[in-house]
Each structure stands twice: as structure tokens, then as C-alpha cells.
């Protein structure tokens, strides 16, 4: 495993730890989109189906279990925890999952590498992950008060796939990898969606101002 890949995974892991920390320490999920979190549960469940079929490494299996467990844990907190769920921005988190899940699934049925159950779901998970942040970004645009933990959470979550892009370039040249359009393009689109957010996040950090996204 190369440094970009490891940095990407650690950034992803850190973003989740930060979100759980915010929820547990402040007993609040204000500013967090339940829609996005539920989409991540779908993403991980469809991508990590091979957990029980193919063994890659202890690291790989452990991380998959962590991502599955934490994503479900976050959704549980937001839906069922008696204190946390009352802080959820129900009225502002209006994005419909359906409009993301269905097109991604249809696209996976049309554009994939092999027509097998695992491969279709894997492809679907890549397409869905690339757009899963949209409800969260829409919610942030509507929020007048974005706390630091939420801002940094979204920043790390965006940075993770960007680091994977470097990982793919590195693997392409060092491991005789062929061109992999499906993950590469999905990852590129996923990172591009964050561009605006990155700009405002870094600017607010440099100017020591509170993060605010233009509506």
C-alpha cells in the first residue's frame, strides 16, 4: 500500500471519528445531513459485500467492518438517540435519496465491467458515493451557523477521495495497472463536487473567520 492510499484511508477514518466525537461530546448532530449518512450506509453495504467472500488483508477487513459499523452507528444516533435526534435539522435536510440512488443504480446496470452481482453492486457503490455528499452540501448552504467540527468533517471527507486519485495515478505507473475508468471518473467527480466547499473552507481558515457558504 502506498502513502497516498494510506493517507486517504486515514483521512476518511479521521473524518468519521470527528463526526462521532461531535455527536457524542456535544450531544448534537446539528448541521449533519441524515440523508448523506444513510447514503453512506447504502454505499458501504453494497461495496463491502465481498467482506465474507474474498480476503485481502486484515487491514482491509478491519477497515470495512469499521466503516460499516460507524456509518450505522451515526444513523442510529441521528434517528433514535433521544437527545441527539432532537438536534437534527429535519426541515432543512430536504434532499430526496431516491433521486440519487435510482439513477446510480440504473447507471451501474448500464455501465459496468462485468455483469455479476458483486460487480454491479460495487459499481453502484462507486457511483452513489460520488454524489452522496450532495444532501450534506445543500444543508450546509442553508445553515447560517456551521460549527468547526462539521466544517472539518466535510473537509476531511472530501480530501480522502482526492488522495485516492493520487493513489490511482501512483498505482497506474508502479503496478502495471490498466486504465480503470469507473473508479477514476467517479472519484474525480466526487472530489470535484467539493471544489467550492474546499475554497470557502480554506479561505475561512486563512482569514480566521467563521465558515459560511454562499446560498
Amino acid at each position: 500500500m502506498n502513502a497516498f492510499r494510506l493517507a486517504g484511508d486515514m483521512t476518511h477514518l479521521l473524518s468519521i471519528i470527528l463526526l462521532l466525537l461531535k455527536i457524542r461530546a456535544t450531544k448534537s448532530c446539528a448541521g449533519i445531513s441524515l440523508k448523506t449518512q444513510e447514503l453512506y450506509v447504502i454505499v458501504f453495504m453494497s461495496r463491502y459485500l465481498d467482506l465474507f467472500r474474498t480476503y485481502y488483508s486484515l487491514y482491509n477487513s478491519l477497515m470495512k467492518i469499521i466503516f460499516l459499523g460507524t456509518s450505522m452507528c451515526i444513523v442510529w444516533y441521528m434517528r433514535s438517540h433521544k437527545v441527539v435526534r432532537q438536534t437534527y435539522n429535519n426541515d432543512e435536510d430536504t434532499f430526496r435519496h431516491f433521486f440519487l440512488v435510482l439513477p446510480c443504480f440504473v447507471l451501474a446496470l448500464l455501465v459496468h465491467r462485468n455483469f455479476t452481482f458483486i460487480e454491479i453492486l460495487w459499481t453502484f457503490s462507486l457511483y452513489l458515493e460520488s454524489v452522496a455528499i450532495l444532501p450534506q452540501l445543500v444543508l450546509l448552504q442553508k445553515s447560517s451557523n456551521i460549527d468547526n467540527l462539521t466544517g472539518t468533517y466535510v473537509f476531511l471527507l472530501g480530501a480522502y477521495r482526492g488522495l485516492y486519485l493520487f493513489n490511482w495515478v501512483y498505482r497506474f505507473f508502479t503496478e502495471n495497472h490498466r486504465v480503470r475508468w469507473i473508479p477514476w471518473l467517479s472519484g474525480l467527480i466526487q472530489t470535484a463536487i467539493y471544489t467550492d466547499f474546499f475554497y470557502y473552507y480554506i479561505r475561512s481558515w486563512k482569514n480566521r473567520e467563521k465558515l459560511k457558504l454562499p446560498a
Partner: peptide, 10 residues
Amino acid sequence: NVEPELHDEL
């Protein structure tokens, strides 16, 4: 020749 493709990634 079944390659693991990029399935070894997360």
C-alpha cells in the same frame, strides 16, 4: 485471469 481489480481498496 480474474484480477481483484481495485477491490482491494476501500
